[in-house]
Design a binder for these strands. Structure first.
Length: 412
DNA sequence: AACTTCTGCAACCGCATTCCG
DNA sequence: CCGGAATGCGGTTGCAGAAGT
């Protein structure tokens, strides 16, 4: 509540830190720890406010900070996490342990954002600015819903972590019972809850599914009439804050008819328009429409339907090509979704989008031939090397989330 | 060489959240 | 529960050096 008055004091130095000041701060913290930041400047003999000292320490002097150029891997991580989390730099920074949130923020604003803009990709939504082509077939809205859900779920996770933290503070024994009943813990480096992780958090199923759906080939996502995916077996009862509901009257939509039951059902329903040939495409304002023809790659315009059987153990889809049945035991994983989808077509929208996005490292933003096997307009480009380096944009989001140690993050 | 513009980054500002008496 | 203090966080600013003219 309220703003700290510590920096309002007159006579305190502002601006760049001198080496002498750095040395004083460093020496003091090494010997005593920072303790109260407010009291630190006087004790350390600095004419600075505590806030300034804290900032200098966390952003510059801390020994576990990696400085210098960001690696490609780090760039990818930032882009991916930003797509998932938005401008939540501290959350992003937890996945880049040696980078500060300030550094990541600066790098995003000075490099990555510009790169995306240059690509014609909205750095906020991570979608092509001209999204109308996608929205024709419902894919864009569906993806937006999933994105919304993933972001919502990440926020929920934070709230859940907070709740657990509070519980722990109140009672260790009570906390133990919480962890006994949950399959995961959420921790951060500074969290008192650095407990071993047992299995993935259930709620990651949403993120996984998000990715899994995204990696489904575009020509299978394009909706005709009504398409319904229902998932039975996501037991969110253990999560006191779970309300995985999202409803939009404008189809496509996602709804959760029974979240509180022990056998909750999460119903994903997307109802696309029924235009006959909704080939999946997106447009880049620097690329001709032809360049994007590879997306979807649905030469027939045959539109699949997902509306089949659901029971407690599985969910079934019928596409125009083959039936898919996915197990619905404890976990609803993207692998199960993806592996089935991959049986139909190895090519998908995600890869192409990622290739395009990250190939912008080359500066020309072109799709290389290695980036797409589609019949693009032959603009080719020279981004093949970058394509080698930078594949699977959304797959990487999934992998990142999946592989990330919860001990690294308060989020997951 | 001088000047202007651009770029990158450290640091600041102020709101939000958490802590604690 | 309340309210002040402490801390966290994200947006923004200002400056130094690089690049361009």
């Amino acid at each position: 509540m309220g703003r700290s008055p510590c920096c309002d004091k007159v006579g305190l130095k502002k601006g760049p830190w001198t080496p002498e000041e750095d040395q004083k701060l460093l020496a003091y913290i090494e010997e005593h720890g920072h303790g109260s930041w407010r009291a630190l400047p006087a004790k350390a003999g600095l004419q600075r406010c505590g806030k300034s000292c804290r900032l200098r320490w966390t952003n510059y002097l801390r020994p576990d900070i990696k400085r210098g150029k960001f690696t490609l891997q780090e760039e990818q991580t930032i882009i991916q996490l930003h797509a998932l989390l938005g401008n939540r730099w501290s959350a992003i920074a937890t996945h880049l342990p040696k980078r500060t949130d300030n550094e990541i923020k600066n790098y995003w604003n000075t490099h990555l954002k510009k790169r995306l803009v240059k690509m014609g990709i909205d750095p906020v939504t991570h979608k092509p600015k001209n999204d109308t082509l996608l929205s024709n077939d419902g894919q864009s809205k569906y993806a937006a819903n999933l994105s919304h859900m993933a972001q919502w779920e990440s926020a929920r996770l934070e709230a859940e972590a907070r709740l657990v933290r509070q519980s722990k503070l109140r009672s260790n024994s009570f906390q133990n019972s919480i962890f006994a009943s949950q399959e995961f813990t959420t921790t951060s480096p500074s969290s008192p809850l650095n407990k071993p992780v047992v299995g993935p958090p259930r709620c990651l199923d949403v993120l996984k599914a998000w990715n899994g759906i995204w990696t489904k080939p575009m020509n299978e996502i394009t909706a005709s009439g009504s398409a319904t995916i229902s998932v039975t077996g996501l037991d969110l009862e253990e999560s006191p804050t779970s309300t995985l509901g999202y409803f939009d009257q404008n189809a496509p939509h996602i709804s959760t008819p029974g979240i509180n039951g022990g056998n909750s059902t999460v119903l994903f329903e997307f109802v696309g328009n029924s235009s006959g040939s909704s080939e999946g495409r997106i447009m880049n304002n620097e690329e001709s429409e032809e360049d994007w023809k590879g997306f979807g790659n649905s030469s027939t315009g045959q539109l699949p339907e997902y509306k089949d059987g659901i029971n407690e153990n599985s969910v079934s889809f019928t596409s125009g090509l083959q039936d898919l049945t996915m197990p619905m035991d404890n976990t609803w994983t993207a692998e199960s979704l993806r592996s089935n989808a991959d049986q139909i077509s190895p090519r998908n929208f995600v890869e192409t989008f990622t290739d395009l996005l990250l190939s912008s490292n080359s500066g020309d933003g072109g799709l290389s031939e290695n980036c797409t096997e589609s019949d693009n307009g032959g603009e080719g480009g020279n981004a093949s090397e970058n394509c080698e380096d930078s594949k699977n944009y959304w797959n990487s989001i999934f992998n990142l989330v999946n592989n990330s140690s919860p001990s690294d993050s308060a989020m997951f």
